[in-house]
Structure formats: structure tokens, C-alpha cells
Design a protein around this nucleic acid. Structure first.
Length: 282
DNA sequence: GGTCTTGTTGCACC
DNA sequence: AGGTGCAACAAGAC
């Protein structure tokens, strides 16, 4: 599932329920989702720390910690994140997710077999579930380490300006869809969002980026922003009848909701791609 | 069995 | 250097 809007939904889960909570325990059911850190170190760093306001860049979710690891401090438990405090950094791959289970419901909601890591706080549990373990959880030791980790990403798809978008895309000489999927170009777009965006912009996914003038790039940017913002409100890419997303898959009608033409299905940039041959001519 | 999958990385190759 | 294609990661659906 997770593209930018899904990750935004996970950010809200943390923001709405877990900010200010002190981590009392960490269960690592499957160490395979921890990247670059052992379960032991991860647990030691996190237990006793307080979760602070999360932020998202593209498909990455950063949860900064206040205070870290074990030792009680004379001042009590700090609740302000400082630049040299660590952050928990999530990437959800294709099948990851984050949910909040309030303490009073923890008993009724037994662990799912794909719940890989659980952070327990007084108010409830933050559960990281991931079927395939294509990505996972990292621990960045400081804000600088977060910057290094995420430094290669392009501007976030939800906030990039038209000028920023043109600047990123214009120099490229490649197919449009793989360009937009590339997280170093624009961060946050996945397969569904990109197909939706190009369908609305009337551009074929396999057309070259070269030849798109400022007006075309501005239009593409505007469509992208509409798709991304609408999806963010839903916390996922909506399977709305007026969206390509509601028609693209076998089991759906696979008819363009705008013109009724049968949709085309193929591979572009190695990914399953759906487009309307009439609305998206060369 | 085979093929497919809403993500990313590393590598060979052009 | 920038771009492309493929395998790998892992686990399930059809």
C-alpha cells in the first residue's frame, strides 16, 4: 500500500495518539525489519525515551525521540527533542503499516502474525506491521544522521512548488513515469499516484520528459498536487469512481471513467502501468 | 507449479 | 554521467 498518502496517515496515527508518550517497552518479534541496528540496541535506545512530533518526507516517517536510553535523569524525563537525540525512522515498503491500539483495547486485539515491532506506552501500543519485509525501521542517532539518511530524496510531492518541480524534471532525459517514480526526483510518488497523475494530465507514461515545456510541466505539477492532496486527506489513494484508481485492476471494469475507452495495461519502467489510449495520446 | 504485486537497492550494461 | 533492466529482498493471492 504505502505511498505518500498512506505514510501521511501513519504520521497522523503517531501525531494524534503517541506524541508525548514515554516508551515503556519494546517488543521486537522479528528482528528482520530492523535495519542497521540490533534489537538489543534498538530497545536500549528507545525504552525510556519520549516520542515527539513526527514528520514525513516522501514515503519516510521520522519520529524524533526526547531523551534516550536507560538512564534516569535528575531532571526527570525530557520531552523536548534535541539535535543530538536519536529518531526512529520508518519506511513501509509495499506492505508496512503503523497502528495505534489504546491500552484498554490491547487485550482484545491480539498480536497479528505480521506485527514485527511494538512500542508500548502507558496509553497504548504503536504496532508496526509488515507482511513482506522489504524495508523496515532504522534508528538515526542524531538529526544529522536523519539528514544523511534522507539527503538524497527530492522535494516532497505534497509541498514542492511548480518552479521546484520544473527544476527537478526538466533536465531529465528519460521516460516520464520512471522519472516521477524516482524518489531522488520527487519524493513520495508511487505507482498508483503516478498513473493517476499522468492520466489527469493527459500524458502517456512512456513518453519522454524531453519536450515538456514550462506550461506542460506546470500542468503536470498542478495535477500531481491535486492527486496528492486529495489522497492525503483520505490517508490513501482513493478507489473513487471518478479516479483511474477505481477502474484499473482486473475485477474492476478497466474502462476510462472520463471517456469510456478500454484502459491499456502494460509495463513501463518495470512497473505495471495503466493508461487511457484516448485521453493520453502520444 | 507459475505469475503477479501500491517499494527500494545494487549491479551490469549502454 | 545519466539511464535502463534485472535480481534480490519476502510473503501472499490467484
Amino acid at each position: 500500500m504505502p505511498e505518500l498518502p498512506d505514510v501521511e496517515g501513519f504520521r497522523r496515527v503517531v501525531s494524534d495518539h503517541a506524541v508525548g508518550a514515554r516508551v515503556e517497552g519494546v517488543q521486537v518479534a522479528d528482528e528482520g525489519v530492523l535495519r542497521g541496528v540490533s534489537g538489543r540496541v534498538f530497545r536500549r535506545r528507545i525504552v525510556g525515551a519520549t516520542l515527539t512530533e513526527p514528520h514525513r518526507h516522501g514515503k519516510w516517517l521520522v519520529v524524533p525521540l526526547a531523551g534516550s536510553g536507560g538512564a534516569e535523569r535528575p531532571t526527570g524525563h525530557p520531552t523536548e527533542h534535541r539535535p543530538d537525540d536519536p529518531s526512529v525512522v520508518f519506511h513501509f515498503g509495499m506492505t508496512g503499516g503503523l497502528s495505534w491500539v489504546p491500552a484498554e483495547r490491547v487485550g482484545e486485539e491480539p498480536p497479528h502474525r505480521h506485527d514485527r515491532v511494538v512500542l508500548r506506552t502507558e496509553g497504548g501500543e504503536l504496532r508496526f506491521r509488515d507482511m513482506r519485509k522489504l524495508q523496515g525501521i532504522r534508528l538515526a542517532e542524531s538529526d544529522h544522521a536523519v539528514d544523511v539518511l534522507l539527503g538524497g530524496l527530492g522535494p516532497d510531492a505534497a509541498t514542492v512548488t511548480a518552479a521546484g518541480f520544473r527544476q527537478q524534471v526538466r533536465p531529465l532525459r528519460r521516460q516520464l513515469k520512471p522519472a516521477l517514480m524516482d524518489q531522488t526526483v520527487i519524493a513520495g510518488l508511487g505507482n498508483l499516484l503516478v498513473d493517476e497523475t499522468m492520466w489527469r494530465a493527459g500524458l502517456r507514461p512512456d513518453r519522454p520528459t524531453a519536450g515538456l515545456d514550462d506550461a506542460a510541466l506546470n500542468r503536470l505539477h498542478a495535477r500531481m498536487r491535486t492527486v496528492v492532496r486529495h489522497s492525503m486527506r483520505h490517508g490513501r489513494v482513493p478507489a473513487n469512481p471518478s479516479w483511474l484508481t477505481g477502474h484499473r485492476d482486473p475485477g474492476q471494469d478497466q474502462i476510462c471513467p472520463r471517456c469510456g475507452t478500454p484502459l491499456r495495461r502494460g509495463r513501463v519502467g518495470g512497473r505495471t502501468t495503466v493508461w487511457c489510449p484516448r485521453c493520453q495520446p502520444g
